[in-house]
Amino acid sequence: MRIAIPMNDKNLDAEVCPSFGRAPYFLFYNSVTKESEFLDNAAAASQGGAGVRAAQVIADYGVKALIAPRCGENAEKVLSNAEVLIYQSIPGSAQENIEALLAERLHLLTEIHPGFHGKQGV
């Protein structure tokens, strides 16, 4: 299973980035081969629609599970159409979040925010 996590740093010990669409990097983790790969998020600097673009990339990578602290409604629409499940991250590193997901300790993200649409997030 391919897992994606928005990241501030290209490091498994780094924490999960609070923003999905505007995270600087994405971590792709393959739970079978245990390989990880970091990708620059081309959507990070978008004027608008960063969530849509980022979700498209996640879907194109064949990701089955996204771990993120929150997700906007546009990104959620893309991800749900692509049948990507969104799990709510827990405080801690990407590594800890992956372990928690594989141990079935993460919950599906239930709250989808209406998006910031150009406004600064909190």
């Binding site: 608008g48 498209q56 546009n74 049948e83 649409h117």
Partner: peptide, 17 residues
């Protein structure tokens, strides 16, 4: 403006974007 996505063989348009 990233108003379009192509997912599961379908084009999605985000009107508000």
């Amino acid at each position: 403006f990233n108003a379009l996505a192509y997912i599961a063989n379908q084009l999605i348009v985000f009107d508000k974007v």
